[in-house]
Design a protein around this nucleic acid. Structure first.
Length: 868
RNA sequence: GCCGAAGUGGCGGAACUGGCAGACGCGCGGGAUUCAAAAUCCCGUCCUGGCAACAGGGUGAGGGUUCGACUCCCUCCUUCGGCACCA
């Protein structure tokens, strides 16, 4: 821990010195000066459709403007992206680097409930604060493109995209979305049936979905607000309750969302995360007839080859056939089990999954392969939301079924023979479950087939007899797109008296969020907007009455497409202009936290593909390159949090050390993607580096250029080091190795400050390569060096390949892999000479102890290894 | 349980494609400067033994491949993050 008092003392002293001394590095003044200059001259304004330069779009994940303001984690990603943005400008690119606010969301609403403050007011205040903080770091954003998801001029287009989704369907054959008007409608439908058919095909649709309903609070809770079956606030019981919700058909895009991952340059681990989240599995649907009635139960299985081993079936408690099939004597027990299951939240179900539970329905199904009667059970280990909500249970070859069968003493039949005989014997005796591939046994005419072949054959056979077909399932579910909240985008949707759901006209957008007095939920599960009767109740042009949709959109909605609004933020006619989209898209570099690796990126990709289908965007994938910054921990190595008291406030760091030191330290801490702890001492270190560079360039007493800095030719070593540094910093920025780039610059400055006369050219070049990292001091020094214009658009220094090469190289000489001596040879010495020189070294001769070398390995410019 | 990331000095970290482990920074020790301090500069700083030259050991643990392994392979341990019975 650093000492507050001591530091304040030092700071006051340096203030005193400032007044005496013109040559002091007054970072606060300098930073203010250049931030004002950049803002007033609109230095970072990006020019649309500039054909003279290649474009480069660097995007940050825009922040939620919380009341706490920035924490030091935010500027980490922003600094990295800013370095790349500034570097690319110097490399001659037309750079788009925007910033905005993802400002809808729960905290402002909760604050409104507690204090009555309008979310607009809270949000504005928070944005103003966080904007000030971001600006104080000197990032090179084009502020004319600032967006705010809560401004009607922005959410007009969020609503517009929703309308497009509502008015589109997915053509499965062509694997793309089309206007709902092109939907082929089966003949012979009544008007009402036709309407229903259309509604069932919209990409935005209504459905009854179970949500976390808390009667005490009179509201629906998000999963993270429910802990162990009770509400986080107050600890009231929470139930699963089906409610009408808006859904988006993201599952239609599952295949494309998987396929197009191959087009983007993201870390493999993130791609895998998305891939697994979508969770494609290939198998078969199989229909089981129910004994003694007309119903059939359809199951999905990835192992149709184990059908002969299916000894019972399990349906999810919520399955529609449970009521119909349950025999009278089992009704009571089954009903009780169902009620308990409904009361459990998803989390509870897993917590209680230590042991399996279930009830027998009293009904039997017929196994299509051998006509055996098998019992039908219900259990909550089968999920209603995946596959068909029912399974065939093969206890010999599925761990979950095995556990269940053992507990309830159900029949186990082995149908797959593993290679290992001992293993096979155990499976046969029912003492082991084997889930791998093997050879079919006890499977009638299919005996002897290997698992993959068997799967194909039996699927074909099921198809023939009309009791099954090949099927693909995804873990991915449709996107629950409505929230029972106030502070979100209103749906441009109207419910008519006769139960129709109609959409607003595009020209009637935006549908503005009405002002309300009370932000509390209505208490009956209806969203807060339902209290605003004068807004909700409307009269249609034909005189009939109707009500508005009172749900609002989730926070994801606004963040799904913000990167497009930056392209054309003030356009009132369109969300964005196509020419501009063609010029700027895709995003070349997207930097943000790994916590958004799945949901935000998946939702965003989904909307983008949808917009692509409709022709509003011209690239398939929005984000070409993605980099996730790691979390920054407190000085105690713990996650920063108010309660731990280890939160570092960026404002204080900037006041005490300056924005340049802050930026430099954030990058110097370690690799961008790593999790790393904060250290004030570390900030001190990079600050000293800037001080050192300052003293190198600026005359101590009078200010202005230091007398030591002269227009002289640099010596060979300086020249070599300078060129090496230019190369290294450039390469490192390209590969996001910012920490090593800074260390290279430190080495160069250490070298330069030892010289009696410092070549001006060298100083100019170090200032230029430092500029993306520490832009304020760089501008100031650039000016001191006699340049009148900003260095933002100065070309990035070039290095000379010849000058980089070392004249002499040091080689390590190993004997049997152990270093015994080092020799220095001219760089162009050939292998033979090196070998000779190595073998003649006294120490080497001693280490060889008179033995003959068996082998001599020479790695040019590295080492020599003598094997004896 | 499954998936992913990572384990290197007192600390943050560096090491190209298998080629001198510990760059750079912090901290610490010593010195210079100063009336004194701050700041700055210089020297030292992986561990063990030795006054030293030097010798030996060392990248979570164990094994393997190789002339040579922080780096590749196998087994295990620990930490962090994510997921939750997906048939």
């Amino acid at each position: 821990m650093y000492c507050d008092n001591l530091e304040n003392l030092c700071f006051r002293r340096s203030l005193i010195q400032m007044n005496e001394n013109k040559g002091i590095y007054r970072f606060n003044e300098i930073e203010k000066k250049w931030q004002e200059f950049w803002e007033n001259s609109k230095t970072f304004k990006a020019k649309d459709c500039d054909k003279l330069k290649p474009k480069y779009y660097v995007l940050d994940m825009f922040p939620y403007p919380s009341g706490q303001g920035l924490h030091v984690g935010h500027p980490e990603g922003y600094t990295a992206s800013d370095i790349v943005a500034r570097y690319k400008r110097m490399k001659g690119f037309n750079v788009l680097h925007p910033m905005g606010w993802d400002a809808f969301g729960l905290p402002a609403e909760q604050y409104a409930i507690q204090t009555g403050t309008a979310p607009e007011a809270t949000t504005k205040k928070n944005i103003d604060n966080i904007r000030r903080q971001i600006k104080s770091l000197g990032f090179s954003y084009d502020w004319d493109r600032e967006v705010n998801t809560t401004s009607p001029n922005y959410y007009k287009w969020t609503q517009w995209i929703f309308l497009k989704l509502f008015n589109s369907f997915f053509d499965k054959n062509e694997q793309k979305a089309k206007s709902i008007e092109q939907l082929p409608i089966p003949e012979g439908l009544s008007e009402q049936e036709k309407r229903k058919y259309i509604d069932e095909h919209r990409l935005a649709y209504e459905a009854e979905v179970a949500v976390n309903w808390c009667p005490e609070l009179g509201t629906v809770l998000a999963n993270e607000e429910v802990i162990g079956g009770v509400s986080e606030r107050g600890g009231h019981p929470v139930f699963r309750k089906p409610m009408r919700q808006w859904m988006l058909r993201i599952t239609e895009y599952a295949e494309r969302l998987i396929d197009d991952l191959s087009e983007v340059d993201w870390a493999d681990s993130i791609k895998k995360l998305q891939h697994d989240w979508i969770g494609k599995s290939i198998g078969a649907n199989v229909d089981f007839k129910v004994d003694g009635c007309d119903e059939t139960i359809r199951v999905f299985t990835t192992r149709p080859d184990t059908l002969f081993g299916a000894t019972y079936m399990v349906m999810a408690p919520e399955h529609r056939l449970v009521d119909i099939l349950t025999s009278p004597d089992k009704k009571e027990a089954v009903q009780k089990y169902r009620e308990e299951a409904v009361r459990k939240s998803d989390l509870d179900r897993t917590d209680l999954s230590k042991g399996k539970t279930g009830e027998f329905t009293g009904a039997y199904a017929i196994n299509p392969v051998n006509n055996e009667k098998i019992p039908i059970w219900i259990s909550d280990y089968v999920l209603i939301s995946y596959g068909t909500g029912a399974i065939m249970a093969v206890p010999a070859h599925d761990d979950r079924d095995y556990e269940f069968a053992t507990k309830f003493d159900l029949k186990i039949i082995q149908v797959v023979q593993p290679e290992d005989e001992k293993q096979s014997e155990l499976v046969k005796q029912g003492k082991l479950c084997f889930a791998g591939d093997g050879i079919a046994i006890n499977s009638g005419q299919f005996d002897g087939l290997r698992t993959p072949e068997f799967k194909e054959k039996i699927t074909a056979w099921l198809n023939e007899i009309g009791q099954g077909n090949k099927a693909i399932n995804y873990k991915l579910r449709d996107w629950l797109f409505s929230r029972q909240r106030y502070w979100g985008e209103p749906f441009p949707i109207i419910h008519t008296e006769d139960g129709q759901v109609i959409s607003l006209d595009e020209k009637d957008l935006p549908l503005e969020l009405p002002k309300v007095e009370d932000y509390k939920p209505s208490g009956n599960g209806e969203p807060p907007l339902s209290n605003v009767t004068e807004w909700v109740n409307i009269t249609l042009p034909d005189g009939t009455k109707a009500v508005r949709e009172t749900n609002t959109m989730p926070q994801w909605a606004g963040s799904c497409w913000y990167y497009l609004r930056y392209l054309d933020p003030d356009n009132n006619e369109k969300g964005w202009d196509t020419e501009k989209e063609k010029y700027w898209m895709p995003v070349d570099l997207y930097i943000g936290g790994a916590e958004h690796a799945v949901l935000h990126l998946l939702y965003s990709r989904f909307w983008h593909k949808f917009l692509y289908d409709l022709g509003y965007v011209t690239v398939k994938e929005p984000f070409k390159k993605l980099v996730n910054q790691g979390m920054i921990l407190g000085e105690d190595g713990q996650k920063m949090s108010k309660s731990r008291g280890n939160v570092v406030n960026p404002d204080k760091v900037i006041t005490d050390y300056g924005a340049d030191s802050m930026r430099l330290y954030e990058m110097f801490m370690g690799p961008l993607e790593a999790i790393k702890p904060w250290s004030m001492h570390g900030v001190d270190g990079v600050h000293r580096f800037l001080q050192k560079l300052w003293r190198l360039v600026v005359e101590k007493e009078a200010g202005g250029l230091n007398n030591n800095v002269k227009d002289v030719q640099a010596d060979e070593e300086t020249l070599r080091l300078l060129n090496q540094t230019i190369k290294k910093v450039g390469d490192d920025v390209e590969s996001f190795g910012f920490n090593t780039a800074i260390s290279a610059m430190m080495i160069l400055v250490n070298h330069l400050s030892k010289l009696d006369t410092v070549p001006k050219k060298a100083v100019e070049q170090i200032v230029l390569i430092l500029a993306p990292f520490a832009p304020h001091i760089a501008e100031e020094l650039w000016q001191t060096l006699g340049h009148s214009d900003t260095l933002v658009y100065e070309p990035w220094p070039q290095y000379d390949k010849e000058l980089i090469k070392e004249k002499e190289i040091e080689l390590a000489i190993q004997v049997n892999g152990k270093i015994k001596d080092k020799i220095v040879v001219p760089a162009d010495t050939d292998e033979k000479q090196i070998k000779q020189k190595a073998l003649s070294s006294e120490k080497v001769v001693a280490a060889m102890a008179g033995k003959e070398p068996k082998k001599v390995i020479v790695i040019k410019s590295r080492l020599v290894n003598i094997v004896v």
